[in-house]
Measured scan of single mutants.
Amino acid sequence: DIEITTNGEEDAKRVIKELQKRNLEYHIEVHGNQWVIKVR
């Protein structure tokens, strides 16, 4: 598993777009303004 910590929603959406392009499965956890994306 890979864990990507982003700085808020805009940053997270940019990362998610890339993950979707590669058809990767991911899970999002929001901790305040930090979005942690866990990639399987």
Rank of each mutant, 00 (worst) to 15 (best):
W35A: 02
K21D: 10
E18G: 05
Q34A: 07
H31Y: 10
H27F: 13
V30Q: 09
R22S: 06
I16D: 00
R14S: 06
W35L: 05
E9T: 05
V39G: 01
I37K: 00
H27V: 15
K17S: 11
E3M: 14
W35S: 02
Q20D: 10
T5K: 11
R22Y: 13
A12S: 04
R40W: 10
I16P: 00
I4Q: 01
L24R: 05
K17R: 14
E25T: 14
Q20K: 12
I28V: 13
V15K: 03
Y26Q: 00
T6K: 03
E10D: 10
K13W: 15
I2E: 05
V15I: 15
T5F: 14
Y26R: 00
L19G: 00
I2N: 04
W35C: 04
Q20R: 13
E18V: 11
E25N: 10
H31T: 09
D11K: 06
W35I: 09
N33V: 06
E3V: 15
V36S: 02
Q20N: 10
K21R: 14
K21W: 08
H27W: 14
K21G: 07
D1W: 15
V30H: 07
K38P: 00
D1H: 12
V15A: 04
D11E: 15
R22V: 04
L19D: 00
V30L: 07
I37Q: 00
T5M: 11
K38F: 13
R14Q: 08
I4T: 02
K21T: 07
E29L: 07
Q34L: 13
I37C: 04
D11Y: 10
T6L: 14
T6G: 13
E9S: 07
E9Y: 14
E29P: 00
V30R: 12
E10Y: 09
D1S: 11
D1V: 14
V30S: 04
K13R: 14
H31P: 01
W35R: 02
R14W: 14
R22M: 14
N7I: 12
E10M: 08
Q34M: 13
K13H: 10
E18F: 14
I2S: 05
I2A: 05
I16A: 05
Y26G: 02
E29T: 11
D1R: 10
T5N: 06
I4F: 09
E9Q: 07
E3L: 14
I4P: 01
H31R: 15
R40N: 08
I16Q: 03
K38M: 09
R40V: 14
G8T: 15
G8E: 06
I28T: 03
N33G: 11
E25W: 12
E3R: 11
V36C: 04
R22D: 04
R14H: 06
E10W: 10
V39Q: 01
Q20E: 14
Q20G: 04
R40C: 15
V30K: 11
R22W: 13
H27L: 11
E25A: 13
W35K: 02
Q34Y: 12
D1Q: 11
I37A: 00
V36Y: 06
E29W: 06
V30N: 05
W35H: 02
D11T: 08
K38Y: 14
R40T: 12
I28M: 05
Q34I: 15
H31D: 06
A12Q: 02
V15C: 10
W35P: 00
G32Q: 05
E18Q: 10
E9R: 09
D11I: 08
I4R: 02
G8H: 09
I28G: 00
K21L: 13
K38Q: 05
N33T: 10
I28F: 04
I37D: 00
V30A: 04
K17M: 13
N23Y: 05
E18L: 14
K17F: 12
N7Q: 11
R40S: 09
R22F: 11
N23I: 03
D11A: 14
Y26M: 03
V36I: 14
E10T: 07
R22K: 09
G8W: 06
Q20C: 08
E3T: 15
L24P: 01
E9F: 12
G32K: 04
L19I: 05
A12I: 04
R22C: 13
R14T: 06
L24E: 03
V30F: 09
T6Y: 05
T6A: 13
T6W: 03
N7G: 06
H31V: 13
H31W: 09
H27M: 13
L24H: 03
E25D: 11
V15D: 00
V15E: 02
H31I: 14
L19S: 01
V39H: 02
N23D: 06
R14C: 13
V39N: 00
I4W: 08
T6M: 11
R14D: 05
V30Y: 09
K17H: 10
Q20I: 14
H27R: 13
L24I: 12
I4E: 01
G8M: 05
K21V: 07
L19K: 01
Q34G: 04
I28Y: 04
Y26S: 01
K17L: 14
E9K: 08
Y26K: 00
Q20Y: 05
N23R: 12
N23P: 02
K21Q: 10
K17E: 12
L24S: 03
W35Q: 02
G32R: 03
T5S: 07
E25R: 13
I28K: 01
I4M: 03
D11W: 13
I4L: 05
G8A: 07
Q34E: 07
V36G: 00
G32M: 04
N23S: 07
R40I: 14
V39T: 03
T6S: 04
E25H: 14
R14E: 08
E25M: 12
H27C: 13
I37T: 00
N7E: 12
V39R: 01
H27T: 15
I28R: 00
E3I: 15
E10K: 09
V15Y: 08
I16V: 07
I28L: 08
G32F: 05
L19P: 00
V36P: 00
I37M: 02
I37E: 00
N7K: 09
N7L: 12
K17D: 09
L24Q: 04
I4A: 01
E18R: 08
L24D: 02
E9L: 11
T5P: 05
E3K: 09
K38H: 11
I37H: 00
G32S: 03
N7V: 10
R14K: 12
N33S: 10
E9P: 12
G8D: 13
H31Q: 10
K38R: 13
E25S: 14
R14G: 04
E29A: 06
Y26N: 00
E9W: 15
V39A: 03
N33F: 09
K13S: 07
I28S: 01
N7P: 04
A12T: 06
A12V: 06
G32N: 07
T5L: 12
V36K: 05
E3G: 03
G8F: 08
N33H: 08
R22N: 08
V39I: 13
N33D: 12
A12G: 04
E18S: 08
Q34R: 13
L24W: 08
I16H: 01
D1K: 08
G32V: 03
E9N: 04
N33I: 05
N23K: 12
I28H: 01
D11N: 10
V39F: 09
D11F: 10
Q34T: 13
H31C: 11
T5D: 03
E18N: 07
E25G: 08
G32I: 03
E10F: 08
R40D: 05
E25L: 13
L19A: 02
L19V: 03
H31N: 12
H27Y: 14
Q20F: 05
K13P: 01
I37W: 00
I37Y: 00
A12L: 13
N23F: 07
I37V: 04
K38W: 10
R14V: 08
N23G: 15
D1A: 11
K17T: 09
I37P: 01
Q20L: 11
R14Y: 10
I4D: 01
E29G: 02
R40M: 13
I4N: 01
Q34W: 11
T6D: 01
R14M: 10
L24V: 10
I16T: 03
L19C: 05
N7Y: 15
Q34C: 15
K13E: 08
T5G: 03
V30P: 02
D1F: 15
E10N: 07
N33Q: 09
V15F: 08
A12D: 00
Q20P: 01
E9V: 09
G32W: 03
K38V: 14
E25V: 13
E29F: 10
N33A: 08
Y26L: 04
